[in-house]
Design a protein around this nucleic acid. Structure first.
Lengths: 138, 138
DNA sequence: GTTGTTTTAGTACTTTAGTATGAAGACCAA
DNA sequence: TTGGTCTTCATACTAAAGTACTAAAACAAC
C-alpha cells in the first residue's frame, strides 16, 4: 500500500510539473479547461479502479485468516512452514528442493518434522490438519 | 458495473456544470489551476479506490459450490469420486480400501485413473487440482 | 445377447515418501 | 564460550504410492 501511495504522489507531481512547464500552451490550446479536468478525473478514476482490482486479485481471501500464533505454538519453523505450503501446492520433495534451492534430503527432514508437529502420518493428512488448524489457506 | 459508470458520468458532468456556472470565479480565485487539477485527480482516484473496494466486499464469492457438471466432464466415475474425497481427507490407499470394503489394488487403480483425469502427477497435486476445478470442498 | 462402462482385483515393477540417525555450520542468547 | 535452535545434508532403510499391464464379473443400454 505504501508503494501505491508513492506511485500516485509521483504521478500527480509529474502532472503538475508538466502543466507548469508547458504553461498550458499546447495542452490547453483551443481545448477548454473543463475538458482537461474531466480527462484527469477519468484517468485517475481508472487508475484507482485498476489498482484496487489488482490488489483484490492478489489477496488470497481472508475467510481463512492464517493463524500465525498457532504456527508458533506448534513449533513450526519458518523453513518448515515454507515446505508445508509447497506440499499443499502438490509438489514432490524433489520439486520443493529445487524450488527452495536445497537438497531433497533436507526437504525430507523438514517433512518428517512437520508430520510429527502436525500429528500426521502422511503429507496428505498434514494438508488436512494444517487447514483444520487454520495455518494454511483453505 | 453499469451503475458505476452512470454514477461517474453524472459526477463528471456535475463537476463540469459547476465549473461553468461559477466561471471558475470562487474556485479558482487565488488558487492556481494546477492545484485544482491535482485535487480533482486525488478525489477521483479516491472514488475509484472506494468503489472497487465496495464491489470487492459485496462479491459473494462462490466458495463451496461443488461443480457436479465438471465431474462428469472429466469422466470421473462415482467410485473414483469417492476415492478422491478420501484422498483429500488424508487417507492412505490401504485405509481407503478398508473404508470402502475393497482391496488396496482396487484403490490404486482408481487413484491412477484419477491422476490421469485430473492431469496430476501425485495425489497431493490431485487435491489441489480438484479444488481449483471446484469439484471438492476447499 | 452383444456392446460398453464400471468396478473389482491381480502381478510385477519403478518411483516417491517417510523413518532413523548422525553430523556440521550458522546464529542467537545467556 | 557454551548451549540451544535452525538449517542443512547424508546414508540406509522400510513403507507407501504410482505405472503398466491383464482380466473378470456386474450391469445398463441398445
Amino acid at each position: 500500500m505504501k508503494k501505491t501511495i508513492f506511485i500516485f504522489s509521483t504521478l500527480i507531481v509529474a502532472l503538475l510539473i508538466l502543466f507548469r512547464l508547458s504553461e498550458y500552451a499546447f495542452l490547453v490550446g483551443d481545448t477548454s479547461i473543463e475538458l482537461i479536468i474531466a480527462i484527469v478525473a477519468i484517468v485517475f478514476l481508472g487508475i484507482g479502479l485498476y489498482i484496487n482490482k489488482k490488489r483484490a486479485e492478489t489477496i488470497p481471501r481472508k475467510d481463512g485468516e492464517i493463524d500465525a500464533k498457532k504456527i508458533k505454538e506448534l513449533g513450526i519453523s519458518d523453513r518448515e512452514y515454507e515446505v508445508l505450503l509447497e506440499i499443499s501446492n502438490g509438489l514432490s520433495n524433489k520439486e520443493i528442493g529445487e524450488k527452495l534451492f536445497v537438497s531433497e534430503s533436507t526437504i525430507k527432514t523438514h517433512v518428517s518434522n512437520l508430520l510429527v508437529k502436525l500429528d500426521a502420518k502422511r503429507r496428505t493428512q498434514a494438508i488436512q490438519r494444517a487447514k483444520e488448524l487454520q495455518i494454511i489457506a483453505g
